[in-house]
Design a binder for these strands. Structure first.
Lengths: 121, 121
DNA sequence: TCCAGTATGCACCTTTTGGTAAGTATCAAT
DNA sequence: ATTGATACTTACCAAAAGGTGCATACTGGA
């Protein structure tokens, strides 16, 4: 079925920001443009493969801009497009919600992990 | 490492609403409480296993309330908790963004699928 | 009596996603 | 000459997410 129709806008939005590192990428790029390696270090424990992959998708989706300086030790800068910035705007309240309830959510998530451990034990 | 610490609130929020059917569930329950089968039909093409699983997680996360009427043809009603309603609020702008750009996003998504088809062809 | 509807559980399998480790080309510094 | 940094690619593998189908216990309707 090619009817990939979304029911509520939430579906559409999540189709774009779904992906383990995309929220972080959005987060870091919302402040300023960043070079690849820079962004990589900022996020911390991403593999190259993953970061590149997610950046490519975001680029294909018109969320981020890739600026290749064509220099010979490679230099590439990533930034949010205007479209990406509208997304970042729309994400702010959700980000705020998450920040506000972060402790609670962390407890919930560790509980999920814990119950899985119980099954093993 | 058990440091499941989120970097930005986005991570925390997405840990809660991540899951193929959760956005839809939130969406439908934000209007009113619904019986299980009712909700199921509203969503359309979910399997029982998935819907139940996602509902259980949302329940465990304190987002939805499960009201069992203990009747003998089973009757159970799901609704948003107060906490769940704060989430729903925070999601509104994102939902609006998705609705606004839905056509664009649908094109993007079908393009993703198309390029995968190219690889096969 | 037999089937449908109710909400849910369980076993199994496929698809998707994420991760690891290696390799590429080019230059600067050691 | 080797090493390290740059941005990125590829092949291979593990884990997680999702899907299918069957089973349950009980009732009401055909």
């Amino acid at each position: 079925m090619t009817t990939s129709g979304f029911i509520c806008g939430l579906d559409a939005a999540l189709a774009v920001i779904g992906g383990k590192w995309k929220p972080l990428i959005l987060f870091h790029l919302s402040h300023e443009a960043r070079r690849y390696g820079d962004l990589r270090r900022a996020i911390g424990n991403v593999s190259d493969k993953m970061l590149i992959q997610q950046l490519k998708e975001l680029e294909a989706d018109g969320i981020v801009d890739r600026l290749d300086f064509k220099e010979i030790p490679p230099k590439v800068e990533y930034s949010l497009t205007a479209f990406g910035q509208t997304l970042a705007e729309a994400l702010k309240p959700l980000c705020a919600w998450g920040t506000e309830h972060m402790i609670e959510v962390e407890k919930l998530m560790s509980r999920r992990g814990a119950s899985e451990v119980e099954k093993v034990a």
